[in-house]
Design a protein around this nucleic acid. Structure first.
Lengths: 168, 168
DNA sequence: TTATTAATTCAGAAAATACTGAACGTATAG
DNA sequence: CTATACGTTCAGTATTTTCTGAATTAATAA
C-alpha cells in the first residue's frame, strides 16, 4: 500500500487519539497495524514511526490492554508480532467504558449532590439549571450503560439514528 | 449553597473538561458559574478558584466564545460580571462541532483514501478492515452532521435511544 | 484633562505529559 | 552452561500545555 497514504492515515488517526483519550503515539501504532497486511514486530514499528523501542513497547501494551491488537507468532522466530483486530468497535467501546467510569460517573454523582443541596437553599435559577443537567446526565447514563454493555444493541442504535437522521 | 458541594462539583466538572476537549480551568470556571446564583466578576472567580487573573480572563474568553456564559452589567459598577447560560446543550454542541471538523473529518478523508489505495494492491484483510471503518465512519458522519445542525432533532434522538435502551 | 479602576496581553515560569535509551530480565539456541 | 536475541522497565530528558503576574491598554469617574 502506498506509503504516502499510510502516512496520512497514521497522522490523522493519531489526531483522533485525543478523542479516544489515548496519546498520539498509541493511535499511530494502531493505525500502522490497521493498514499493514503483514504482522509487525516492535522493531518494525519503532523504525517505521521513528519512535524509540521503549515507547513502542508502551504503546503496544496499551493497545493490548484495549484488546484492539493481538499478538501472533511466526514459526522459528522468537519475536512478537502484532496484527490489528478487525473489529473497529472494540477500541471505542473499551475506551468509552473507561471514560464513563472515570469521568462521567463521578460528575453525575456530584451533580445529584449539588442538586439536593441546591433544593434546600439556592436560588430557583441554580436549581433549575442543575435540575436540567441532572436530567440530561441521567438519561445519558441510562443509555450508555445499556449500549456499552451490548454491542449488538449499540449497532441497532446506530441504525435507528441513521433512519432518524435520514428524514429530511 | 454548601461550599463543599460546590467544590466537589467544580472538581468533577473540571475532569470532564478532557471529554469536552477544554482544559480543567475552563471547565472549573464554567462549573462555578453554573452553581452561582449571583453573577461573578473576574476577581470573584480568580479568588474563589485560586487562579491568576490572567488565567481567569483566558478561561472566560473561551467560555464566551462557546457562548455558554454571558456577560451582565450591574448598574453603577464598571466591572464585568458573568452568569452561566442555562442551556447545558450549547457547550457540548459547540465543542462537538469543532472537534468533528478538526479531527473527525480529516480522518474520514484519510480512511477513504486509504481504502481506495488498498483496493488496488493490498491484502483482502486490510481492505476488509478499511471497508468496515469507512462504513462506520460514514454512518457516524451522516448522523452527526444532521444532529449537530439541529438540537431539536438531537433531543429526539435521545428520547429514541432511551426507549431502545429501556427494552430489557 | 488626569486619576483610577478594571480588562487584556504575553513573555517567561511551572507543571504535566510524552519520549528516549541504556540497563536489566528472560527465554531460546547453540 | 553460555551467548544471543529479544522484551520490559524506568530515571532522566524533551516537549507540550497551562498558568502567572507585571506591563499595557481601555474605559469611566473626578
Amino acid at each position: 500500500m502506498d506509503n504516502d497514504v499510510v502516512d496520512r492515515f497514521v497522522a490523522s488517526w493519531g489526531m483522533m487519539g485525543s478523542v479516544w483519550g489515548v496519546n498520539t503515539s498509541v493511535a499511530r501504532v494502531h493505525a500502522l497495524l490497521i493498514t499493514s497486511d503483514e504482522p509487525l514486530s516492535l522493531d518494525d514499528i519503532s523504525e517505521r514511526l521513528k519512535i524509540s523501542r521503549g515507547n513502542a513497547n508502551t504503546c503496544l501494551r496499551e493497545l493490548r490492554n484495549w484488546a484492539v491488537i493481538c499478538l501472533v507468532k511466526k514459526p522459528g522466530d522468537r519475536r512478537d508480532y502484532y496484527v490489528s483486530e478487525s473489529d473497529i468497535w472494540r477500541m471505542s467501546f473499551a475506551i468509552m467504558r473507561g471514560r464513563k467510569k472515570r469521568e462521567f460517573d463521578p460528575t453525575l454523582r456530584a451533580v445529584m449532590d449539588a442538586l439536593s443541596s441546591a433544593k434546600k437553599g439556592s436560588s430557583k435559577m441554580v436549581e433549575k439549571r442543575l435540575e436540567e443537567m441532572a436530567g440530561l446526565l441521567n438519561t445519558m447514563d441510562n443509555i450508555s450503560e445499556k449500549l456499552l454493555a451490548n454491542e449488538a444493541l449499540a449497532k441497532k442504535a446506530l441504525t435507528l439514528l441513521t433512519v432518524l437522521a435520514g428524514k429530511r
